[in-house]
Amino acid sequence: MAAVLFFIAGIGAVAGAIGVISARNPFYSVLALVAHLISLAALFLLLRAEFVAAAQVIVYAGAVMVLYVFVVSYVGLRDEPWHTMGAPGGAALRGGAALFGGALAVELMIALLGTGLRAVDSRGAGYVPGFGSPGQIGDLLLTKFLFAFELASFLLLIAAVGAVVLARRRGEGEPEGAPEATSVIEALRLGSMAEAVGAPASTAATRLAELNEPDQGEGRGGGW
């Protein structure tokens, strides 16, 4: 029974992965990834990782994929042409990538099958009754891996702030043409070479006056 489930889920996972990289429309790629993630959750269940499987379905296949779908619809990506226009040797690059992937697969298989670990060929060690339950995961997260847990929460906070900074509309919430907070530092040339060699103070004053001109706000920061 477990073998049948494994092959169904495993073939689903690999087929989903192939669908992700071969679908021309990014929307279909996202849907293929959802199928892949759900198959993977079934594999996690077979490995007695109940909590991770549930988190995979709810957080990954649910929330993260909704975010992907939202961005794909917002940006309105169109089909990618198979023949890569304007890129000479696009087909050669694709063949090279496939070759690289195949070589990597062969190498990993050799590493896995030729490993000295006997346990790889077993069904796994015995486990305590609560193996993979939310209680045990939470216990580990809040005792042994407390530092990693806190670090992960900080990482999420930084990512959220970074996403807001990246995706905000330029100049929203502040008067048109007003200098940004960093432009004062830029105007005074703090931390620059000009400051180090003692550039005349007049240049800093004129640059600050330049930045306060209303029509200067548009041209700045065009490239990133």
């Binding site: 495993g10 690999v14 077979l46 992937g101 990993l108």
Partner: peptide, 20 residues
Amino acid sequence: MNIGWYLAVSALVFCIGAAG
């Protein structure tokens, strides 16, 4: 199923992702 099978699926998916 032996653990090796799961690792094989994992390796395949990783290579497909790298090629993508």
